[in-house]
Design a protein around this nucleic acid. Structure first.
Lengths: 339, 339
DNA sequence: ATTATCAGCTACATCGTTTTCGTAAGTTTT
DNA sequence: AAAACTTACGAAAACGATGTAGCTGATAAT
């Protein structure tokens, strides 16, 4: 069922039917309602490719993320999808699996106009950003969130990551930690170094000397992560507090502590960024800093749609920072100060 | 950059360039390599809408699921995406949020040829399936997974749900449970009633009388779930074992047990279907039946692509059942039998 | 030498919409 | 009553790629 057939049924021209369907002022009320009725009767739906081809508009956005089995990104997708559905947009998902090659391949794929805009959170491996510059050069609206490239002029939506680092570290300090380790993913990831700077700031404020051996980057596969954390926890001068910048590293730490017979929080306290609804049920319950994931998704999508619809790019410097929330639980509980 | 411009640059006709790019035998090797070189130089990419319009093929599939903040569906998406990426397909995501109205709206959206095929897992509320029949009537390849409509002739990929029910229930029985409750979502969901039938079968095999008051459907919002579970656990004749058909209900049970001061596994044992990598770290660690989520995604996608590419629908009766795996942990540990 | 065959290329119709530009009536202005 | 507008519609040209059918010159077959 297409316009041609619809037009024939109605004894009208294709253009008249097309205009009637999009409520043009050129068409009389009577004709419009006749067309609408017939279109409904015959279940006419516009062909999205013909329409997109003609209008040079896809009504689709892409969400490019490292992975999806993850409370944070899942919630972000929820946020994005909620706005997309409101606005009648479609959402394409691309996963980089933390692999820069894939990210580049995806970025190249998206240069051909398939989408009106892109939301992206960088892979762990991403160092070079030529593929992102290329997208910008093609004038494709682009919004980064969470893991952002600092030096690209595009809107960015993040959590208050520096503050996360400060709050997490001070929470550990308040609960008696003296030797606090910082665990994170690749150091070139924005979330890694911003949270690190918060961590360092908190140490400075509390007159604790920073110790580079307590800053551990766990890149690579699962086994390497385990190895790095195990090595840290087996040191004779082992830390008494761990600030894990991502949930997975906190879980690894829990597992290694179990393996080594270390008691949380007695021997070592742990705090992490996490969006899991199970954090409170862990053994012991896990103190977390919760990111406003859904809101990040909504906000980033909202900005993207503004760019798409206004066809203006003076959002370049827009930088949205949403606040996280500390949820204190047993994994950081001080020994004595039981109130 | 389009074919026309490319052709002009090369002093060739549009059709020649088009054919050269798709490696047609009609074009000489020399011309082909010249075209390829120029196309690369000018970074030519085919316009997906023009191509889709002409070929009546979108190279896109849709994944329609209830939610995405969920280990199971996240992993499914991983599986789907892995095959889609291999085959050069794009993946559109649609969330129903367990809402039938949304599911219907999405199904209607997808009738216009935007996608070459659809993978779907039903919403909790879905009772009527006219919207699904409509998709079938339009001859759009359709594969259901996990939460399937029993009476629609489309390929279906699921876990061995009946067996899950049997294994879960017998595991509880083996660990000493006498009064086992079954917690699930809406009764019209396939995963609810198949797992139920496994539960009932296990009871029968073990000569335990079934008790309808121990079968609890937790539909609706979070508060209602809490209420239903709380009511169950406050009964004087409270169950000593819980088989939760989905992870969320096990979490709710943990929370309510905490609230009521019930000890797991001493007072009550719990087993659930779950794909969380945190199950082992809960307090107590949670016995789970793990679904092969990634494989379900891959398998369902593989079937879908076969349908799309062969343009044949004699897969109608295809029914793939993948096996789950029991991971016994402390939440179901018997009192004495410590081996 | 004449026809058949073939490689290699081009012209053109097509996919289904959108939109610009006409145009024929009817309506208002002077 | 002629000129100037409106109103309501239609013809046709895009949008960009694909594929059929046709054309040309050259080689092979008779």
């Amino acid at each position: 069922m297409n316009l041609k057939q619809l037009a024939k049924e109605l004894n009208l021209s294709i253009s008249t039917v097309s205009k009637a369907l999009r409520d043009s002022h050129e068409i009389s009320i009577g004709t419009k309602s006749a067309v609408l009725a017939k279109a409904k009767e015959l279940n006419y739906q516009v062909n999205p490719f013909a329409s997109s081809l003609r209008k040079q508009k896809s009504n689709t956005i892409a969400v490019v993320i490292p992975e999806v089995v993850n409370g944070f990104f899942g919630r972000v997708i929820n946020g994005v999808e909620s706005i997309a559905q409101e606005k009648g947009y479609h959402v394409l998902i691309y996963l980089t699996h933390e692999n820069m090659q894939k990210e580049v391949a995806i970025a190249n794929l998206l240069q051909n106009g398939r989408v009106d805009g892109i939301m992206m959170s960088l892979s762990e491996q991403t160092t070079d950003t030529a593929h992102l510059e290329a997208l910008k050069a093609k004038e494709i609206p682009l919004v980064f969130f969470d893991r952002i490239p600092e030096h690209i002029d595009s809107p960015k939506v993040t959590t208050d990551d520096v503050n996360c680092g400060i709050v997490a570290t001070e929470h550990l300090i308040e609960n008696g930690c003296k030797r606090i380790a910082y665990l994170s993913m690749s150091p070139n990831l924005s979330i890694s170094y911003t949270r690190l700077s918060g961590y360092l700031e908190a140490l400075k404020r509390n007159k604790i000397k920073e110790d580079n051996s307590l800053i551990v980057y766990c890149t690579g596969d699962e086994e390497q992560k385990n190895h790095s954390v195990r090595k840290l926890l087996k040191r004779k001068n082992r830390p008494d507090g761990i600030f894990a910048s991502v949930e997975k590293l906190a879980i690894t730490t829990y597992e290694i502590c179990g393996e080594l017979g270390l008691k949380i929080p007695e021997d070592i306290k742990i705090i992490t960024l996490s969006n899991s609804y199970m954090a409170g049920l862990l053994n012991p319950s896990l103190t977390t800093i919760v990111q406003p994931a859904y809101e990040i998704g909504r906000e980033a999508a909202a900005i993207l749609f503004r760019m798409v619809e206004k066809r203006r790019h003076h959002f370049l410097l827009e930088r949205t920072v949403l606040n996280s929330k500390l949820v204190a639980r047993n994994s950081t509980k001080a020994k004595r100060s039981r109130k």
